[in-house]
Amino acid sequence: MSDTPVVRVVNLVKIYQTGGLPVPAVRGVDLTVEAGEFVAVTGPSGSGKSTLIHMIGGLDTRTSGEIWLDGRRADTLSESGWAVLRREQIGFVFQFFNLVGNMTVADNVELPALLGGASPRHARERREYLLGELGLADRADAAPAQLSGGEQQRVALARALANQPRLLLADEPTGNLDSRNTRDVLRLLGRVHRQGQTIVLVTHDARVASMADRVVSLLDGQIVDDGAIPRVRRRPPGGAGDVVELRS
């Protein structure tokens, strides 16, 4: 099972029909993500990166091609089949948090676990653990609107991780955050990745992309590059970086 890829996408195509005109958004993408990998998807706006990740999460239907999640064919699932799969296997984080406004932070995080069939006690323990990890334990009883954008995004991340999903999908998770909040979200992503979480994330932010093991670049709905981000030569011990160079 460990060598079954978490995601395998074969010749995936998405064509939108707007006013009778077919607009291709994704044009034949092949992508495989192994367990534990952190893949960043980048590309200009309109390159199809959001469409791609939405299709992988079943939030958008494919026009043709195959989507396999954890060795199971997913693109042929019905709407309700996808709903079950998402609940059990996929965590999703969006740019605009999408928290349920009339529920507390705690209930927002517990909801997916409860829907997934966890016992109330288990859901509560998981929620307490995640909010603790995110430094939000004291905000459990607050309403989302009382939180800053960065706090809301951390709650959204906790919610996405509540079911210990096989796959975490994120679409511009820091797109709406300032640099301090971005850093907090990045720290958490780094931590869950080190714990083995598989992550596929769409981003414009190079700080976010640079945390990934691998970067996939899209252009006009096609993959133009897919490979590891190399390690730079380490700076000498005791010395410093190459941030500034004073000209002599």
Binding site: S210, I229, V243
Partner: peptide, 20 residues
């Protein structure tokens, strides 16, 4: 050109990781 841009992008991302 595509290969040049791709290689440069990966290089910049590795520099970004180092700066982070």
């Amino acid at each position: 050109r595509m290969a040049l841009v791709n290689r440069q992008r990966r290089h910049y991302l590795s520099l970004m990781r180092d700066l982070a």
